[in-house]
Design a protein around this nucleic acid. Structure first.
Length: 796
DNA sequence: CCATTACACATTTTT
DNA sequence: TGTGTAATGG
């Protein structure tokens, strides 16, 4: 029995396809990762393909990591030579080696969206652009789209002739790009763009990678943009050793799960793949292994409302399963309370554990209310997205120190920290230094070093020099062999008094912030420990630039996860709650009122399809008649997507709280007209006659009835089965983290530290809200550390 | 230079 | 509602 015996016919066909372009249309849950990994194994084992010649591209680190793991498992020897990584890190790897051909330094830094915005603010200031009319974000998205479409600033300028606005954009784009280069920095889009530029500039580089990557595989192909496609095409266009162009390009995707058009994903990459490669073979994977029949049929019915999709019919051998449930609540708080309570009950009954549940919503703003209820119920949870760990203030500050030490050319980082903690260096000073730097064509940091010569600085210069010496000292430390990145971080925190400064500011969530610094430290230590050779500071900063918190999902084990539908793509959960199924929320107000609502609604529908197909066992949909949005109450009708699910698949629940008898009547008009088929039909797709009205219920309701204004929380909660008084409980943000305030060891105890190993506690001082612990480590000597920070484990 | 306050603003966002 | 930026006065 071979590993390929477990594949179905189509999967097997895909796995055994070895030469020439291949498009795999893989429906949700059809085992596409399995196919990719098995195909890699097959190529190596049966076709003698050298692992060195295989490239597998994904969009997320998580996907790359999972594929790597699975490939390692089934391939065995030689798997480490297979190049499995994300588009962006692939490009970084290539650029680190060759980018000097484009006039950049190989030690370039990568700017995240925050950095981009800061840089854009500088650009706007310089070009005297009123950011009230042209917002940084929209300018950045113009530039991003240009880069996605491979339009250079020069080309953009040429195309802008005669169009005032576009000319403005062109000058912004030009200046922005100029400054990136001056900072020796690339933004995310540049990583792709510059790699293509490299390939077009250096024949040597292109040929090198074409020869190397004889077999290319691309996951989530529907999400590729024009630039990414160009990149793939360039690499896949090489000749093999016999001078033949084989185009051994295998792309896997699902046009129904294309949900990133707003970010430049070009759906025609997948729809027109066969036109681009006329000899392409197409294989459809239509058997779903994930969901029950009912869930899958609901998904199929919804997505069938889209036109212009590749014809597909997902089916499953799984059981019928429970019926899909749609629950209508009066208010958003009830929705949250009900769902959280149900999760609690289900776990109590030992039917499931917390990690089996996902709460999915359209916008991040919807998470808050669930978080409140989860805290009250003491249920461990994790919110994905909203604020990226690496986007937190404290983390950005400390990383900016590391960046400054690593690459003085990154002026953004230097400017960020020059007055953190406060050194009495203000905007006026920074402007003067900036001026001087620009005039002398040197970097901001270099200008700081020459502060004494900058005219008009007198007093400020004396404040600058200690900062420069500090950075120089730290630079010399990290240059020493055996001096680790975590040592450096400690040194930075100590030398700058960062934590003390944080405490002095007396911010309300001080503990959280300190905990976050501890987390950063752990991440650095973990990174250092995972590396085979001691990693450089640049290595670490690069890693940081390319990770998101979705990547760390596996770290927290038994928690309920909350995330947007976008973040949920590629994941699966036994129990899925799809909440906020309301017109104006999902589909979003923006899509309903877009210039081209048809297209935008289709993207929302694909998002809905993604959401539904995340569920394995049970799917619960819910909507609320009224919800608080940005401080005002909104009244929304249930989502059109609910109506697109045939009635026979759904169990309807009306306001299970049923606390206020008159309410259920007053809202009778909110019950959607359903696709009233009571029996399954064949391959039907009747238009159900529904016309998107685009009219928010808010108008209708407030015109026809004044009741809304007379209701308050008390009315709704009267007779509630839940205790409303609990909702004011204190709110820890996440579980499993800090033990702040209590430590389980004392003087004389033996403890272990993640890095320093085992040691004896010799002293403990009460340092405000934290403890300063002195430990005598057998290997590392005596160290003083903050308890919240060091995460010491008691051994005896 | 820094703290306070007023004000605008708010889809989704793998990297 | 709640956050992050711009304007203001000390």
């Amino acid at each position: 029995m071979s590993i390929y015996d477990t594949l179905n016919t189509e999967q097997r066909k895909a796995v055994e396809h070895d030469k020439g372009p291949l498009l795999i249309l893989a429906g949700a849950g059809s085992g596409k990762t399995r196919v990719l990994t098995h195909r890699i194994a097959y190529l190596m084992e049966n076709k003698g393909v050298n692992p060195w010649n295989i490239l597998a591209l994904t969009f997320t680190n998580k996907a790359a990591g999972e594929m790597r793991e699975r490939v390692d498992k089934i391939v065995g020897y030689g798997s480490e030579n297979i190049w499995v990584s994300t588009f962006h890190s692939t490009c970084v790897k290539i650029l680190r080696r060759w980018i000097d051909a484009l006039g950049y330094d190989k030690g370039f830094t990568i700017y995240d969206s925050d950095d981009q915005k800061t840089l854009m603010r500088e650009v706007c200031k310089y070009l005297q652009i009123d950011t009230k009319n042209m917002k940084e974000r929209s300018l950045l998205s113009v530039i991003s789209s240009a880069k996605d479409e491979l339009v250079t600033p020069e080309e953009y300028e040429l195309r802008a002739v005669g169009d005032f606005t576009k000319q403005k954009y062109a000058s912004v784009y030009k200046e922005y790009q100029k400054r990136l280069k001056a900072n020796n920095a690339l933004d995310f889009d540049d990583l792709i763009f510059k790699t293509i530029e490299l390939f077009q500039t250096s024949k040597e580089a292109l040929t090198y990678y074409q020869r190397r990557f004889q077999y290319i595989m691309v996951d989530e192909y529907q999400d590729t943009n024009t630039a990414q496609f160009k990149l793939i095409k360039l690499m896949a266009d090489g000749m093999n050793d016999n001078g033949v162009r084989e185009h051994n390009l295998c792309v896997v995707g699902d046009d129904d799960q294309s949900i990133y058009k707003f970010r430049g994903a070009n759906i025609y990459n997948i729809l027109n793949f066969e036109k681009e490669y006329s000899d392409a073979k197409v294989i459809k994977l239509e058997q779903n292994y994930r969901s029950t029949k009912r869930i899958l049929e609901a998904a199929n019915e919804v997505i069938a409302n889209n036109v212009g999709r590749k014809d597909k019919a997902l089916w499953t051998d799984n059981g019928e399963g429970d019926s899909v449930r749609f629950t209508q609540f009066d208010r958003d708080i009830q929705e949250a309370e009900y769902i959280v309570n149900e999760i609690y009950q289900t776990v109590q009954s030992e039917e499931a554990t917390y990690q089996d549940f996902a709460i999915l919503y359209r916008t991040n703003a919807q998470s808050r209310i669930f978080e409140e209820k989860l805290v009250v119920k003491n249920i461990p949870y994790k919110i994905i997205g909203s604020i990226n760990f690496y986007a937190r203030k404290e983390v950005k500050d400390l990383l900016s120190y590391l960046k400054t030490i690593d690459n003085g050319l990154d002026s953004l980082a230097v400017k960020r920290i020059i007055n953190i903690p406060k050194r009495g260096i203000g905007l006026a000073t920074i402007d003067k230094v900036d001026d001087y730097a620009a005039r002398n064509n040197i970097s901001f940091y270099e200008a700081l070093r020459q502060a004494d010569y900058i005219p008009g600085l007198q007093r400020a210069a004396s404040k600058i020099s200690p900062f420069v010496s500090l950075i120089e000292i730290l630079k010399s430390k990290i240059a020493q062999p055996d001096y680790s990145i975590s040592n450096l971080l400690d040194e930075i925190i100590e030398a700058t008094g960062y934590i003390e400064d944080l405490k002095e500011q007396e911010l309300e969530n001080e503990d959280d912030r300190i905990e976050i610094i501890g987390e950063l430290k752990s991440k650095i230590v973990a990174f250092e420990e995972a590396a085979l050779e001691p990693p450089t500071l640049s290595d670490f900063l690069e890693e940081v630039a390319l990770v998101s918190d979705l990547d760390n999902l596996a770290e927290d084990n038994n928690v309920v996860v909350l995330m947007t539908l976008h973040s949920a793509k590629g994941l699966e959960f036994p129990y899925v709650y799809l909440c906020g199924m309301e017109e104006g929320i999902f589909p979003s107000y923006m899509s309903i009122h877009a210039d081209d609502p048809e297209t935008e609604i289709e993207e929302e529908r694909r998002l809905c399809y993604v959401g539904i197909t995340r569920a394995m066992k049970r799917l619960s949909l819910s909507a609320c008649n009224q919800r608080m949005l940005r401080g005002e109450t909104q009244f929304n009708r249930p989502s059109r997507f609910i109506r697109e699910i045939p009635r026979y698949l759904l169990t309807m629940e009306q306001n299970p709280f049923n606390s206020n008898p008159f309410r259920s009547n007053s809202h009778a008009s909110l019950v959607p007209e359903f696709n009233n088929r009571l029996q399954p039909a064949g391959v039907t797709r009747p238009g159900n006659g529904y016309q998107p009205s685009g009219v928010n219920y808010k108008e209708k309701f407030s015109n026809s009835s004044g009741q809304a204004g007379t209701l308050n929380n008390r009315d709704i909660y009267a007779g509630s089965i839940f205790d409303k008084n609990k909702s004011t409980a204190p709110q820890p943000r996440e579980f499993g983290g800090s033990n702040l305030g209590k430590i389980d060891y004392g003087i004389g105890d033996t403890v272990s530290h993640i890095k320093f190993g085992v040691g004896l506690v010799t002293n403990i001082n009460n340092a405000g809200k934290d403890y300063e612990v002195t430990v005598d480590f057998s290997a590392a000597g005596t160290k003083k550390m903050l308890a919240s920070f060091a995460k010491l484990q008691k051994l005896s």
